[in-house]
Design a binder for these strands. Structure first.
Lengths: 117, 117
DNA sequence: CGAATGTATCTACATATGTCAATACGTGGG
DNA sequence: CCCACGTATTGACATATGTAGATACATTCG
């Protein structure tokens, strides 16, 4: 688990529309957006968000995907820091990390410098 | 050119964190986020945003990529509706489509229903 | 018109990724 | 202790994608 999103770079909230991103910032953001670049993962995210917290076992049926596939996608989202999982007994309960989602949202926020007065 | 982002679905601004997305919405959003899932395209986007409007010929050097590669990326962003190009003489001038970028940003905005009072 | 120049397309290729069957791992129940 | 069950990992495969050389297309200039 552990949500290995070792930021380091990504000073905090570089906006794509603000200053030119350097290579490192661009790669970090690209990795994050890549986690959102799959319809299954987006539905997964929305299912988790809607439930607030949900057992992985409850995701297979609505997604219509095999168990390893769903596990693969939860891992991708967790690696991106977008969700976090807690193991209780034999089940894993997933919930979203709203702050992390917000970082990506802010990266697409209107530019400050280019929309002055 | 033409920015073929034939939405149709994407009612307007489905938030990933709000209601569960249906298949079509998820696929549309995924396609859009996929356009952002590449560091070169993110830097491309930020270069265009920073300049307000920029000739394609001015993108090769800062990106350090071959001309066909840059053309490939501008096409990807244009297909996603994120940028639009205007041909003037032999040059193509690219600019961003802020409304479209905002749609993606809004899709990552905090949930309404799950953060009530 | 023909040469020069900027951009897009074609093609090829290496890598990345989504998918799932098989299997390993961990935990709780009998 | 062993089995059942939920989850993660491995392996294999088909498809998608980033990259750039070669080339086609378009426009301007002489």
């Amino acid at each position: 688990m552990a949500t290995k999103h070792d930021d380091a770079a990504e000073a905090c909230c570089p906006s794509v529309l603000d200053a030119p991103l350097d290579q490192a910032e661009a790669e970090d953001l690209a990795r994050a957006f890549a986690a959102l670049a799959d319809p299954v993962r987006l539905r997964l995210l929305s299912l988790i968000a809607d439930a607030g917290e949900i057992c992985a076992c409850a995701l297979l049926e609505p997604l219509g995907k095999a168990q390893p596939t769903v596990s693969h996608h939860t891992k991708a989202l967790a690696d991106a820091g977008l969700i976090t999982g807690e193991k209780r007994g034999r089940w894993v309960w997933w919930s979203i990390v709203p702050e992390r989602v917000a970082v990506l949202g802010d990266a697409l926020a209107p530019a400050r410098s280019n929309t002055p007065a």
